Amino acid sequence: MSNSIREIGENIKNSQNFRGRVSFDEPLCNHTTMKVGGPAALFLEPADTLSAAEAFLKCFEAGVRVFVLGGGSNIVASDDGFCGAVISTKLMNSVTDEDFVLCCGAGAKIDSVLEYCAQRGIGGLETFAGLPATCGGAAYMNARCYSVDFSELIDRVEYIDLNELSQNSGANVECCVKMYHNTGNGKEWDYKLSPFMGKRTVITRVYLSGKKKDCSEIKAECEKYILDRTQKGHFRAPSAGSVFRNNREFGSPSGVLVDEAGLKGVSVGGAQIAPWHGNFIINTGKATAFDIKSLVELAEQKVFERTGFRMVPEIIFL
């Protein structure tokens, strides 16, 4: 780690506008569900929206690369780590509600939101029970569970406009915090598509529309979906969730295409295409990011050779 990175981190830590935690050489394997990844030179955990904006501003001013990390459920971090700053939303995890509209911090885990809902009789999110994601990540990826898109629940989203933030160095960061209102325009949302992809924005809060429902019904439905995920092997070993996006034009789900290519159970190093599901790659204990990437490329190649279809990875390589 360079002295400049440490200086930047200390500068952020001592800023009157920053609340949260600052650490150095933080192992990313501790922050991803796949359990791989070397150290992040600078690891920042802002406690609120304005602290996040301050962290971004300081990094921009210093010319430091930044990566935003939510629950780490679809991330495979490099074995060499990340030489810039990782900004984690972990501490931005508050959950409140008003008139059955939930206000969830970007770092609030889906399961913790559902626990909150079950205690207060707020229904609508049950199909997402057991999803190892944060609200910010689910909104950004427009997660789909049991034919329900996360965007169907979204009322509005608070975000930081990073373009405006970087262009207004030294200005009040509050002016860079914006609100997106979900009008239900189908062109903005689709399968694994959201209005925030490909733009310099960072989601900080997500407002979800719920409905009144009996607490016991919510708990029973959540247990049903978690049981189904368990029986499908979602929790048997560390993974990054579904590896490839499904494409209806291919005629079959990606997991089926991988299976038909004879790849289920195939290993590279400590990484393995799950014997029970072709669209999962699991860490059998000592997998590296290189092992996982090699398996992804192998599956892409073999499926293409057999079908002519080019599968698109859903997981992100950092």
Rank of each mutant, 00 (worst) to 15 (best):
G137R: 00
G121K: 12
G130F: 00
I87S: 06
D97C: 15
A106W: 08
Q119C: 14
I110R: 01
I122Y: 03
C104H: 08
G84T: 01
R144N: 12
Y140L: 08
A129C: 08
D99E: 15
T96L: 13
I110T: 12
M92R: 01
R144H: 15
I122A: 07
D149E: 15
D99F: 06
F82P: 00
D80Q: 13
V86T: 03
C83D: 14
C117S: 09
V101I: 13
Y140H: 08
C117N: 09
S151C: 14
C117I: 06
A129N: 08
S151D: 10
V86S: 00
S94D: 15
A118W: 08
L91F: 05
G137Q: 02
V113G: 01
V95L: 10
L114D: 05
E126H: 04
D149F: 10
A108K: 07
K109R: 14
T127L: 10
V101P: 03
E126D: 13
P132V: 00
K109N: 14
L91I: 09
D79S: 09
C103S: 15
D149N: 14
G121C: 14
N93A: 10
A108Y: 00
G124E: 10
L153I: 03
R144Y: 13
G105S: 10
C83G: 13
D79N: 11
K109W: 05
L153A: 06
G123Q: 15
I122E: 07
G124W: 05
E126R: 04
G137P: 00
A143S: 12
L114G: 00
V95G: 03
L102Q: 04
G84F: 09
L114V: 08
M141W: 02
C117V: 04
A133T: 00
K90P: 05
E115R: 12
G105L: 12
C103G: 12
G136W: 00
A85Y: 11
T89R: 04
G105A: 04
G84R: 05
V101A: 09
I87H: 04
Q119R: 15
A133Q: 01
C135G: 03
G124A: 10
A129V: 12
S88A: 11
D99S: 14
A143I: 03
D149S: 13
L153K: 12
A138I: 01
I110M: 11
G107N: 04
E98H: 13
S88K: 05
G84V: 03
A85R: 02
T134M: 06
E115C: 11
A118P: 02
E126K: 10
G84P: 07
C117F: 06
A108L: 05
D97I: 06
C104L: 11
F82T: 01
G121F: 04
N142K: 03
C135V: 05
G137C: 04
G137M: 01
L102K: 07
N93T: 04
D97K: 13
A139N: 07
P132A: 00
D149C: 13
A139P: 02
T134K: 03
V113Q: 00
K90W: 04
N93H: 09
S112T: 10
A108Q: 11
T134W: 01
D111Q: 11
F150K: 02
T127V: 12
D149H: 13
A133L: 02
G137D: 04
A133W: 02
A106S: 13
L102N: 06
M92L: 10
S147F: 11
S94T: 15
P132D: 07
